[in-house]
């Protein structure tokens, strides 16, 4: 990644209004190929709305461009060849095989009546390998654990061969080990050259894995930059209130955000 290369994704002065309410305002963001950027913020901050704006699912003003070309000009299948999305809780029939799900990612690359070629099969297998679910190929979706399920949907997204991958809370409702496995997959994708934008609820997880973070609050950007610049005591107090404390990881030095309970507030009040 060189600073001179134009950003893969560039969002400028994004404004999203729905039913008279401002959901996002003055949001700007740039993301280069090879970068893993986390979008953080409390519930209702506009994280998912930002994702939906980038994928063209909500109307907005301001510009969103991919490799310098405005995204508005791209229609369905063309967009799907460049941008892949893994939603928060994607659905698939429980009787579908993982390999079938992954193969659906080839849809935007095939004609209406097109048949999958051996090249499509190879790309799908590669996607499943990279998502760490090739060994699950013959399993049914309904039999997967939460983490396996998430990786199956990531494989579907990778089969689209996207330049930009958007993930909305890929680790929600997963245990700690599955969270780590999913983020390892995502990190490797970015290291291999994809641009990845991921909505993360868990601040420590975001700080541990992302190159940069974007902190949203009430539809606006509070801070953006390296995890240590974004996750600061002031920002946390402003956005998350008094019940969280900021620590530093003893090994990596990255920010750790932990619940603090009432004691912390008493301490803060006593020593302003």
């Amino acid at each position: 990644m060189t600073e001179l290369a134009p950003p893969l994704l560039e969002v400028h002065d994004l404004l999203v209004e729905m039913a008279g309410r401002v959901l996002l305002h003055d949001v700007s963001l740039s993301l280069h190929a090879g970068e893993l950027v986390g979008v953080i913020g409390p519930n209702g901050a506009g994280k998912t709305t930002l994702m939906r704006a980038i994928t063209g699912r909500v109307t907005h003003s301001g510009t969103i461009s991919l490799d310098g070309a405005p995204l508005e000009a791209m229609r369905g299948r063309e967009r799907a060849r460049s941008i892949a999305v893994v939603e928060q809780l994607p659905e698939a029939p429980p009787t579908m095989h993982v390999s079938e799900l992954a193969m659906l990612g080839r849809f935007p690359h095939l004609g209406l009546l097109g048949r999958e070629t051996s090249r499509d099969v190879a790309i799908t297998r590669d996607a499943m390998t990279r998502a760490g679910c090739l060994d699950l190929a013959e399993r049914l979706i309904g039999t997967l654990s939460g983490g396996e399920r998430r990786r199956a949907f990531i494989a579907r997204a990778l089969a689209q061969e996207p330049r930009l991958l958007l993930l909305d809370e890929p680790t929600a409702a997963l245990d700690a080990s599955a969270q780590g496995e999913v983020f390892e997959v995502i990190r490797t994708l970015a290291d291999d050259g994809a641009g990845v934008l991921v909505v993360v609820h868990d601040l420590s997880l975001a700080a541990a894995w992302c190159d940069r973070l974007l902190l949203l609050h009430e539809g606006g950007v509070v801070a953006s930059g390296a995890p240590r610049e974004v996750i600061t005591a002031e920002h946390l107090a402003l956005v998350y209130g008094p019940f969280v404390s900021l620590l530093s990881h003893p090994d990596t030095g990255k920010p750790l955000v932990v619940p603090s309970g009432l004691d912390a507030r008493v301490r803060v009040d006593a020593h302003p």
Binding site: G76, I83, V85, L101, L104, P108
Partner: peptide, 13 residues
């Protein structure tokens, strides 16, 4: 067969 959102993201009108 997936949900409507995914279908749209995959380029289905």
């Amino acid at each position: 067969q997936l949900d409507e959102e995914q279908a749209a993201h995959l380029g289905v009108d």
